[in-house]
Amino acid sequence: MKKTHSMSDRTSDIILVVITAIVLLIVAYPIYYVLIASVSNPYDVYAGKTFLLPSEFTLRGYTAVFADPNILSGYINSIKYTVIGTIFSVVMLYITAYPLAQRDLPGRKFFSIFFLITMYFGGGLIPTFLVVKQTHLIDSIWALFLPGGVAVGNMIIVRNYFQNSIPRDLIEASEIDGCSKLRTFVSIVIPLSKPILAVMVVFSMVAYWNDWFTALIYLTAEKAPLPLVLRNILIKSSASASQAATISGGYAELNKLTEMIKFSSIIVAAAPMLIVYPFVQKYFEKGFMAGAVKG
């Protein structure tokens, strides 16, 4: 790209940079603002003194968040659900996508349609709820994973990736060497599918980390994941009883701390996924493209 650009090219470069910079600002600023507010005196935040920089820097909001037993147990629950859920989902995606990627598998079309239908039609909230109840999963963490079944959209992406991006020669060679289908899957296909594996792991992690509706329906309060715990703080705006008991400075002090907890809990809940996704970002486009091509 060492060409000399014409004048009009330079002008349009500037226009494009300005447009994208404005969009960048609109997207990033709310997150930045919450970050700043989370380490500031909340009275200054509400007085409009923290548009750019924090005022009276403090980490009290964060110490309060991690001292709250409800938030802490929510955090631990969320980590647990995310780890188990991600392993479950990705295994399900792989063991479904691999057989369906074999063009010569008898019944392939039947199974494909069998899964595809669930993408467009389902029993709905209550009929699913009743089955979860009948299978005794109410208040079991498996209620978070099993009813989701196979994420069909992602499964199709993985299947197409298997079909299009893994050299057929390698698979045939391994089969001629006497490897079984399963062996080929484990020692050739899985290692060669790392880019799409990374993307699917991140997608599943994000889905489980951010999910709260399933837990709202199926789990009791002490098993609530982080977002559901935050509902009391962020949506219902109520200070937890344990907080109120430990505050000595009276109502004003409690009020202040409640506001600080709002900001810092947002950061605490959002940070893990915002830190993780840039690592696999370069695979997003590639993965989508390889997966989008019809197999």
Partner: peptide, 16 residues
Amino acid sequence: VLYAPHFISTMVICGM
């Protein structure tokens, strides 16, 4: 930066 908000929970977005 543009992808970031997609990775935030609805709960957190509504809190914000």
